[in-house]
Nucleic acid binder design. Structure first.
Lengths: 141, 141
DNA sequence: CTGCTTGCAAATTGTTTGCAACACC
DNA sequence: GGTGTTGCAAACAATTTGCAAGCAG
């Protein structure tokens, strides 16, 4: 379940060297890279990958629902391969570090019907903002 | 409290015709405009406002903490003048409509210390995604 | 005069697209 | 040979910045 490459394969997504490398960069937890960061890491493994190819691959993975976009402040979009389990994000306002939070079962984020304005809900994005331990420590130096 | 112009004045923000018009555009509830929309509406009231001035005014209002940025999917940043009461957002995935939600006192969005990775929390952003009533109706036609 | 604000235009940044060359059944 | 993928470069979109001119105290 947790393997992005495997999930993409079972979804019938045609694999190529470039796409494999891009998907490999997106492996692991607490991964929330920008397209440019993904491209840079992909190039390290396979030198001749163009930016356009990286963007197209990412767009398709998102369309397949196997990669999510994280809406954090800042110009660059960030990609999160961890779509298996609904989770929330914790962002450091100082350095931009992002950690995943897996809510402990409460999942109190259902919206009362009275406050829903008649929307059909499809998902929730929760972003906690704060200062990470490293930045806190640096501030007190 | 709810008047943005008043809040800006009491914060010592120097007022100018351009800034007043921009702040006026940002009045009301369920307002989540992009910089370009704000600029367009501002021009309707005062023809010679440049985009740069609109951007600068918005950036300063955000820096003062009197206007918030809403992180929704889509390229353009959206500005929300309603910073008085912590609230959440409900976004239509079809048409992009955004409504404010004022949680009914539960505010269950505190983060247990165990799951906080040692962050000092400063805020939370909650974005519910769904399909608005109008879009639901349009889909069944 | 001095300092902050404005407006224009150009620069930056992030993302998308058109299109020819290529690889794979 | 047709379908789909790649890479380059150019197009786009959103935002920021440099700088000369304007306004207010």
């Amino acid at each position: 379940m947790s393997n992005l490459l495997h999930r993409l394969a079972t979804r019938g997504w045609q694999m190529t060297p470039q796409r494999r490398v891009i998907a490999e960069v997106l492996a692991g937890d607490h991964v929330h890279l920008t397209a440019d960061e993904i491209h840079a890491q992909a190039i390290a493994k396979l030198p001749e990958i163009s930016r356009a190819t990286a963007y197209k691959a990412l767009t398709e993975m998102v369309a397949l629902g196997e990669v999510a976009v994280v809406n954090v402040e800042g110009r660059a979009r960030r990609y999160d391969p961890n779509v298996d389990r609904a989770h929330q994000h914790l962002v450091c306002e100082r350095c931009g570090l992002i950690r995943d939070i897996h809510p402990a079962g409460q999942e109190g984020l259902a919206l009362g019907p009275s406050s829903g304005f008649g929307f059909k809900l499809t998902g929730v994005d929760v972003v906690f903002r704060g200062i990470c331990p490293d930045c806190s420590a640096a501030a007190t130096l």
